[in-house]
Design a binder for these strands. Structure first.
Length: 1099
RNA sequence: UCCGAUAUGGCGCAAUUGGUGAGCGCGUCCGCCUGAUACGCGGAAGGUUGCUGGUUCGAGUCCAGCUAUCGGGACCA
């Protein structure tokens, strides 16, 4: 017969290794799915990590969340397949390759071929795959890594193309332009990633100009003019005067207050009325100048007089027209040179009126688009003015070429404005401006061609379907994600890079005809036509690599036989990962059934930073292509911070190395700590001390409970083969713990089902720690080691066994290693269940019939009463081994006495007292306290509550007794009489005259501390038992060894030995107990109050 | 500047959804139990629940405003 394995101590990392070996050898993960082959599915999507970076401790957190719900659902009888995946494209990979090769973007295609470069990317992208595989295994994350989806595979790309084609066909793809950071010196757009590199934003001094835009005097503008020849101008500030020739609008704020100020132009001395924000007058006019005499002004005076002539709301000015400032070019389309409202306009800088050049600012373009403005782009991609800008034509707007003779265009433009009476103010201005990280030159914002997904078209549907998704936490879905959807912009899909999925769109040179390709077969069909038309030499192979540069060599043919070239862009990598529900199965080209059975996902989980990332792209593609959600439940996990609450970073040296942490503490302690510390969506301050605490308190206790069980079950050869003792025949405490266990099953089940792992883990901890170990086992110890293997003992074993196996199952989703270790140790010995792993077992089903809330209440009384008695003992300095005669207990209500009687023996043995005496108040010795029950009384009395509370506080003992007896009380207020019942009051015993009392809520306990000689003798006997047991233990005797005890004679011991000798012998398994003088080799032991005795214990 | 989250003893977290001495764990100090290499128990110290107002008989909880931290976005004319 196999025995329960007994261990020398708990070593969680060892447990991990042992269990991993077992899982591996028995293919337990496979089994857990194969067993459920025909079961309903629970679909999980794995968000693909990039193996280009090393895994961190936060990945352990994110993946614990994923793993635990998949394991839970498997135990609930679902088939949960977990296809892994790798994100393999994207800028971080390209940048790391560039860095490694010591090249820049411009070198690709010149110093190194695109082919070589992409080969390098393909090699690099899986650089840390081994490390990822390693951590996946070590942390116990069950995911299928044998057959993962990989985004750079042709099949995957083909599926993505299919999605793009669907979008294209439904009018979701269009070509437009956006304003992006652009480096003329490098000739390339910059990503926000590149822009956020340290040192990118620098303080520089530029020439800033406030220009005067002359208002056109028409019907609408009439109200601005006080006299016919008044010169009224809007003034707007810019730090980039080179954008002024491209100005097409002005923006102001509707709600901002503006003023018209009469003054003189500082450079020409001509009178002028300028309009600016009221709040900014002080910025542009000298103090006291509003009191100067206008007529006395001479050109060149330092102080220029001014007067506020009128005041307007921004709203009144919207729609007015002005003369073009520098009329070199007219915009080809749109309604330009108008005043618009812009919600970004503030009065913190400038004049409260913003110069708008739609080609050179993102806000500018947005406001221009919204108002149908035209645009002027009078600077080319080299950063110089185009040919049609008069005297400035061909000049660089910044010194991009390091020309030593470079003349600042901003200054020259400013001079021109001054001489033409168009400059209100020109000065140097220091500000923070982004620079290109490669060339160190200032960037400029420039319109670049891009392909867009018209997500705005599907916005309403996305919002609607989002409401059907269960977000954890809800606020992330409703607010964060919901708001994001409400303010949706079109999705810029284009990336001007090399390693990624190419945009499958071909165009003729004039853009008149374009084709979007949705599959390799489509492409081949088009290539066939092209070969016929003579644009290509040969058909492409079936396994033609769809990446650049090969794809760029494909030239298609238009309906008119013109060559069509591919649009050179790649698509945003977020589209790659958002396509995984389809592309992981190569849908729709293969696996249609598989796809349908696995769509949409029941559950996904990633970090909250994915709200605008993967969560969005999954949702957007699903809504636009399939009018469906992509996932039904989503848990967005919080950030993992260092223990000081700061971000973990290598620079601060506060990172936690995941492999070391796993090696030191084992996966379970870390997983359990992460889940129990706070809800997964809260930020977690990760502290290894907390992991250690979990290990000690939870796993240590549970392990020890098992050890205790194993020790005695082996002695008694208990393998749970006996008929189960009916609950009715078991002790009260057995029924109690089984009742709690079933409550636990129920609640933990609900918590897991509701994606609330911290609630579940905390409840399991409380059960194991407080109830099972420190109450059940503690109080039942004797049943396990005393006496014969009778029914009561079997009942105890059966009860504990059930608790342990059930806990193993309940905890297994979060702590898969230890749970299996525990389960196997138990089940392998008993063979009770057919499963050889807890992960193949079913989730425990609650038995409502054994949940007895009354019993739980009783036991709660027992625990609290015991605790009160112990506190009294402490106060009186009477040790627990000293028996006492009785406890006095005031009776709270009728049920109370009965309830306490049910657990009386437990209390008495726990606190070492002989009896309980109940007292009712007939003797008048109990002082009572009364308090309103706010919850019930508040509803009845409402605003009279306050006065009622005062009245109640004034009740004396007589009134309290009266209320208790009659069970009712009439509260008089404002001539009104409100009947109250006993329920509306909380009456507690406060004191018992002449006794030592302690209180805990309604409970009051008094203790009789009189010590008789008999009690003293018994106390000494108990002390002796304790000392002898300690000696046994120190001598490493087996718990079953019989011993001989000799004690050095002492008067104080005689009564104890005489009266309780048999008791002592029985307790310590002694065959003899002698009290004699001159014991050889006795141990000196401090017994009580400085009484030292010599004891000899022999086998 | 906008959006979101968070704010409770030294630290980490609770508080049954508005009901009244604000709990638990860690840590510190004193004491105890242990036939279980684990845990626990009793006691002590430690709180104006970020601030200010409001609603209410009653607010840690609801509302408004503010502050701080974190995250995300926009912008830096």
């Amino acid at each position: 017969m196999k025995k329960y394995t007994e261990y020398k101590g708990l070593n969680l990392p060892e447990v991990d290794k042992e269990i991993l070996k077992f899982w591996d050898e028995n293919k337990v993960f496979d089994q857990s799915m194969n067993n459920r082959k025909d079961a309903p599915t629970y679909v999980f999507y794995e968000g693909p990590p990039s193996a280009n970076g090393k895994p961190g401790i936060h990945h352990v957190m994110a993946r614990t969340v994923k793993d635990l719900f998949c394991r839970y659902q498997t135990m609930k009888g679902k088939l949960v397949e977990r296809k892994g995946g790798w994100d393999t494209h994207g800028l971080p990979i390209e940048l790391s390759v560039e860095k490694e090769l010591g090249i820049t973007k411009e070198d690709i295609g010149t110093k190194i071929t695109v082919e070589e470069y992409n080969t390098k990317c393909r090699e690099t992208v899986m650089r840390y795959k081994d490390m990822w595989d390693d951590i996946t295994v070590k942390m116990g994350y069950w995911v299928d890594l044998d057959d993962p989806y990989i985004t750079f595979k042709n099949d995957y790309i083909e599926s993505v193309w299919n999605l793009l084609k669907r979008l294209y066909d439904n009018g979701y793809l269009y070509k437009g332009y956006t304003i992006q950071p652009y480096s003329p010196a490098a000739g390339t757009g910059l990503s926000s990633h590149e822009l956020n590199q340290p040192g990118c934003y620098r303080d520089v001094k530029d020439t800033s100009a406030v220009a005067q835009f002359r208002v056109i005097k028409n019907e609408d503008a009439k109200f601005l003019f006080d006299h016919a020849d008044e010169d009224v101008c809007f003034i707007a500030w810019t730090t980039t005067p080179w954008t002024l020739p491209s100005n097409t609008a002005l923006a102001l704020g509707k709600k901002i207050d503006y003023v018209k100020v009469s003054t003189y132009n500082a450079y020409t001395g001509k009178p002028v009325s300028v309009i600016l924000a009221k709040a900014l007058i002080k910025k542009w006019f000298k103090e006291g100048a509003d009191e100067l005499d206008f007529d006395a002004y001479q050109q060149g005076d330092k102080k220029i007089p001014y007067r506020i002539a009128a005041e307007y709301k921004g709203e009144q000015l919207v729609g007015l027209r002005y003369e073009q400032l520098l009329p070199y070019q007219q915009p080809e389309e749109g309604d330009a040179f108008k005043v618009l409202h812009g919600n970004f306009v503030s009065t913190s800088d400038g004049t409260g009126i913003v110069h708008i050049a739609p080609s050179f600012g993102a806000d500018d373009m947005m406001v221009g688009k919204q108002n149908g403005m035209g645009a002027l782009t009078l600077v080319d991609k080299q950063g110089k003015f185009t040919d049609n800008v008069g005297e400035f034509s061909g000049r660089y707007v910044k010194n991009y070429k390091d020309n030593p003779d470079y003349k600042n265009v901003d200054i020259d433009i400013s001079i021109k404005l001054k001489t033409e009476n168009k400059a209100f103010n020109v000065q140097k201005y220091a500000h923070n401006y982004p620079h290109c990280w490669r060339t160190d030159k200032p960037i400029l914002y420039y319109p670049l061609d891009s392909w867009f997904v018209k997500t705005t078209k599907a916005k309403d549907r996305m919002v609607e379907l989002n409401k059907t998704i269960n977000w954890k936490p809800a606020a992330t879905g409703e607010k964060r994600f919901g708001n994001w959807l409400e303010n949706l912009q079109d999705w810029n899909l284009s990336r001007s890079r090399f390693w990624g999925i190419p945009l499958p769109i071909w165009r003729t040179a004039d853009g008149a005809e374009e084709k979007c390709i949705g599959s390799v077969a489509d492409l081949q069909a088009e290539v066939a036509k092209s070969v016929e038309a003579g644009h290509m030499d040969a058909q492409i192979a079936d396994d033609f690599d769809l990446h650049r540069p090969y794809i760029d060599n494909i030239v298609l043919t238009s309906s008119k036989g013109e060559p069509m070239k591919r649009e050179l862009d790649l698509i945003d990598v977020w589209f790659d990962s958002g396509s995984m529900p389809y592309a992981q199965w190569h849908y729709p080209f293969e696996n249609e059934e598989k796809f349908k059975a696995n769509y949409p996902a029941d559950f996904i989980s990633e970090g909250v930073d994915q709200t605008r990332g993967w969560f969005f792209t999954l949702h957007a593609i699903a809504v636009m292509c399939f009018d469906s959600v992509a996932y039904k439940n989503v848990v967005s996990t919080g950030l993992l911070q260092a223990k000081d609450g700061r971000k973990m970073s290598k620079r601060l040296g506060n990172t936690v190395e995941p492999f070391k942490a796993l090696d030191d503490y084992g996966a379970d302690a870390i997983r359990w700590y992460m889940m129990s510390n706070s809800a997964p969506w809260e930020n977690l301050k990760f502290d290894l001390d907390g992991v250690e605490e979990v290990r000690r308190k939870f796993f240590g206790t549970l392990y020890n409970t098992y050890s205790f069980y194993a020790l005695y079950a082996n002695v008694d050869a208990f393998y749970n083969k006996e008929t189960s003792v009916p609950l009715a025949k078991r002790q009260e405490i057995d029924r109690w713990v089984i009742s709690l266990l079933n409550t636990l099953k129920k609640e933990v089940d609900e918590d897991y089902a509701n994606y609330e792992p911290s609630r579940a883990t905390r409840k399991i901890m409380t059960f194991v720690d407080e109830h099972l170990s420190n109450w059940y086992v503690r109080l039942c110890r004797r049943r396990f080691w005393k006496g014969e293997k009778n029914e009561d003992k079997i009942a105890a074993y059966q009860t504990l066994y059930e608790c342990l196996t059930t806990v193993a199952k309940l905890m297994s989703p979060v702590a898969p290693f230890f749970a299996d270790f525990l389960y196997k140790n138990l089940n392998d010995a008993t063979g009770q269940e057919a499963f050889n792993s807890v992960h193949l077992a079913d989730f425990p089903v609650v038995d409502e019939s054994v949940i007895d809330k009354d019993l739980e209440q009783r036991m709660n009384y027992a625990q609290r009463i015991s605790s009160l008695v112990l506190s009294l003992r402490k106060r009186e300095k009477i040790r627990v081994r000293q028996p006492l005669t009785k406890i006095l207990l005031p009776v709270l209500d009728k049920a109370f006495r009965e309830q306490v009687e049910g657990v009386k023996d437990l209390i008495l043995s726990e606190v070492n007292v002989k009896s309980i005496e109940y007292i009712t108040d007939t003797a008048g010795i109990i002082t009572k306290k009364i308090k309103p029950n706010f919850k019930t009384l508040g509803r009845k009395l409402g605003k009279h509550m306050k006065s009622a509370a005062q009245v109640v506080a004034g009740f004396d003992q007589d009134i309290i007794a009266q209320i208790e007896q009659s069970g009712s009380y009439n509260f008089e207020v404002d001539g009104e009489s409100i009947p109250l019942t006993l329920e509306d009051f909380i009456i507690t015993s406060d004191d018992i005259e002449g006794w030592l009392v302690a209180n805990d809520g309604p409970l009051t306990v008094a203790l009789d501390v009189t010590l008789t000689d008999d009690l003293k003798a018994e106390g000494i006997a108990r002390e002796l038992v304790n000392r002898i047991q300690n000696i046994r233990k120190n001598k490493d005797f087996n718990v079953t060894d019989r011993i001989k005890v000799s004690i050095e004679s002492h008067d104080a011991l005689k009564p104890a030995i005489e009266q309780f000798g048999e008791y002592i012998k029985d307790e310590v398994l002694a065959v003899s107990l002698d009290l004699k003088a001159g014991v050889q080799g006795a141990e000196e032991v401090d017994l009580v109050d400085g009484l030292v005795v010599g004891i000899l214990v022999e086998r």
